[in-house]
């Protein structure tokens, strides 16, 4: 009986922890999305980080926060430099959480008007 009670308690705790963790993740995703918009990442990378000619795709295969921080603190190219005073490491972690939550795009071959395109224009 005691063992059953113990198992139930552990299960409840685990469920609670998972729910709390999921909630934390959702909060981080929401915060990350807001930061992504506020500091203007979306202007070059798109509102969901899918990228375009102005800014590279940030998702899928999002880089870890440290790699992103390293790049944007010392950007050598057209990308504006974001110092820590403008965008903190914690905010970058939130942005990564947001980018990892973005659902993947369809494949070109699954899109009717992209499927038949050829370089010869036929």
């Amino acid at each position: 009986m005691k063992l059953k009670l113990f198992h139930s308690t552990v299960l409840l705790f685990s469920l609670f922890s998972a729910a709390a963790s999921a909630q934390d993740d959702a909060v981080a995703v929401d915060r990350g999305q807001k930061t992504f918009m506020r500091v203007g990442c979306y202007e070059c990378h798109g509102t969901d980080g899918k990228g375009n000619e102005a800014g590279t795709a940030l998702t899928p295969d999002t880089l870890p926060p440290e790699a992103i921080a390293n790049f944007i603190r010392f950007s050598p190219g057209r990308m504006p430099v974001y110092p820590e005073e403008v965008l903190s490491d914690a905010e970058i972690e939130d942005i990564v959480a947001f980018l990892e939550s973005v659902p993947p795009s369809p494949d070109a071959d699954d899109i009717d008007i992209l499927k038949g395109l050829t370089p010869e224009g036929e």
Binding site: G46, T47, D48, K50, G51, N52, A57, S105, P106, D107, A108, D110, I111, L114, L117, T118, P119
Partner: peptide
């Protein structure tokens, strides 16, 4: 061309 075709799919439903 193929690279562009694949990239065009990104954010297709955005």
């Amino acid at each position: 061309f193929e690279e562009s075709r694949q990239l065009a799919a990104r954010g297709w439903d955005s």
